[in-house]
Design a protein around this nucleic acid. Structure first.
Lengths: 214, 214, 214, 214
DNA sequence: TATGAATGAGGTTTCATTCAT
DNA sequence: CATGAATGAAACCTCATTCAT
């Protein structure tokens, strides 16, 4: 994970990505403010000075990182959410849930979102950017799924806002439990099983009921 | 919010709380590392030096703050969750949800949890502490609720892990949307309505169904 | 030694001396610059503020201390050195040596000279003062002793400078070994025996020799 | 003394020594606690930050300095003391005395021992280190000299402790007079003459006497 | 392109000194 | 007289950034 290959072996065009990768590691370990450019450089197998050949400043690295991550996540999410959504929104949700739980349990992948969360206070533009480029994409996709299901007669008529939170919330909560707040003796849950169990509850909650109260 | 009354007028025994309050503000605005003790002091209406009469270091303020908040939240949560849980778990969940959404929409209250989230990377002990003192209390309470409902015949037999995530997740997600990732043109949702809508979905998801599979 | 009696019990006129005594302790433990007025105050059984009722500043304490000590030592030395010097300079030297070795082995007494030594760099006036008020008194007394002995025919005709160094030097060296540079497993020497042994060498070195050169 | 040549012109590998040299100056002028790293840096022709590229802390400089000095002095002393000691201990003592008086009259050379003396209170390890690495070497050498002389029949049978103090003491005393406690109108003594005069007394004091009292 | 020495602003922490009570 | 809260000027140390090589 950590770059350790000799500089000479590597291609110069890879440098920026290597630096960003190292930066991601250090940022999520220490937080942005406490991260030292020197550490990023060392982890990328470069000298401190060299880093400044590729990025103007530490903030520039943060921004590049977030943009990169936002792009990736947004693409993945939008692709997935549309895939088969119209035919079978329930099946689509299950698939998305499984993918998301798997991905976000990987600290390497959850690192970027967590970083944004951490630094949102100091860089509100970052939070706004992430909201628009990642969160909104996800929410829109979920909204689409839900409306499709409703049209199909698979889902009841519930408030969009609430449905989206019910869809997304469990993933967010699980991401935090399994990364930031993980304890050493936490049991290792299978993302597939967990996804099924969550989907079972949430989808059931959206199903129309013949004779129901509430 | 910001103390501005002359020092002499105020009671010395209030100083620690005044400082913590100021520290909370500055920490959540800038993050712990970027927060300057000078700013905390000024916002508490004191000089930099005076702060050190009450706290040994900046880290000491962070710890005190987290402990304070943990105590408060844990108490509130455990009180609420037991209140009437045995008689009517559904009603209890609705009440908890409403309370949580209201509380966490208030940036003053959500500040501490968000701070922990931000600094967890640099202070893993803090994350552990919060997990044990706050999160586990909440999870335990939710688990209790769910098992009670199951015994009552109000809830289906579902995996505890998943049920807890379904219960808690939407609140976590909403907290983030309404604080960290808030956009200026976000509609102001009524916490009561939102709680009802979410409860409607989640509780319905747990209900036994006459003729039905997943 | 350290003041621990209740303030109420003590007489106000003793305050300055109690403070100086505490200051002496702290100064020799930490050095002047690193000594904290707070520590001095506590050790004198007072609050920090009260110390400033008796002394204008930390430097004022240092000066008072050195003057006090200089007065004491100079008096003792000059008294002793004149006592019986004319009748029997050898006996006088033995007596002085014994007294000096005894006194300077006591860390409480050697503290002041060592303090002057330590702070001489930063307070040259102190060094000058001590030189004139203490060292010169001692050197003069020793010079008197030597000249008397020479007139008596008990001592050879040697350079005054060298003789004084030979007289005083061993005491200075022993003081350092037994205070600053003491090791835990250093043997405890009897000042009387040591004084006799040193006097034996030094006085013998000054005696006229019948047929002999160096 | 003070480096003033532009940084770029100088060789980086000299930096540590240049810094130590500057530190020695500042420490002996102000004492360790009152010495400012900024002053050391400026005197070494560097910025504050650069100093920290070479030494971890101010204390690290002090330690390096003392070790450096200890090494030098111990080497010099042990070399000298063994040189010709067996053949003619009296001549050896005269040579050592002359060397020591010359060296220690030079403030640059006596600076380190005086520094140790000053800071011994605050850094007892330093005092211990110096005692073992410098003082003991000197005392051992002197002891060797004395025992050799005794075997040769050149010296009387006297207590080792006392003889060593008689040998070393005058040098210590003279060092202090000529550095710490120097007055502007002190006469400039020739170290060679002084050494001869002191040696004359001390060695005479150790010589066996045909008909003597005490 | 890459290095690593150097800078200097900025942050935390300490502490002599003051002053209202 | 005495207290202890408060101040504010340093001082140590860190690190983003620059630059000569």
């Amino acid at each position: 994970m950590t770059a350790s290959i000799r500089t000479a072996r590597r291609r110069p065009e890879d440098r920026p990505d290597e630096i960003l990768s190292a930066a991601m590691e250090v940022f999520s370990e220490k937080g942005f403010a406490a991260a030292r450019v020197e550490d990023i450089a060392r982890r990328a197998g470069l000298s401190k000075g060299a880093v400044y050949l590729y990025f103007d400043s530490k903030v520039a690295m943060l921004k590049a990182l977030v943009e990169q991550s936002a792009g990736r996540i947004a693409n993945a999410a939008s692709t997935l959410s549309l895939m088969g959504a119209d035919d079978d929104p329930e099946q689509a949700y299950r698939a998305i849930l499984k993918m998301a739980l798997t991905a976000l349990s990987d600290p390497e992948i959850s690192a970027a979102p967590r970083l944004v969360l951490s630094e949102a206070g100091r860089f509100p533009e970052l939070a706004q950017f992430y909201r628009k480029r990642v969160i909104e994409v996800g929410r829109t996709a979920m909204g689409h799924l839900i409306r499709t299901g409703r049209r199909n007669g698979r889902f009841r008529d519930v408030a969009d806002e609430a449905a989206v939170l019910a869809f997304i919330g469990p993933v967010v909560a699980q991401m935090m439990l399994s990364t930031v707040f993980r304890l050493d003796d936490d049991p290792e849950l299978d993302p597939g099983d967990l996804a099924d169990a969550i989907a079972d509850i949430v989808l059931n909650g959206l199903k129309p009921r013949s004779v129901n109260d509430a």
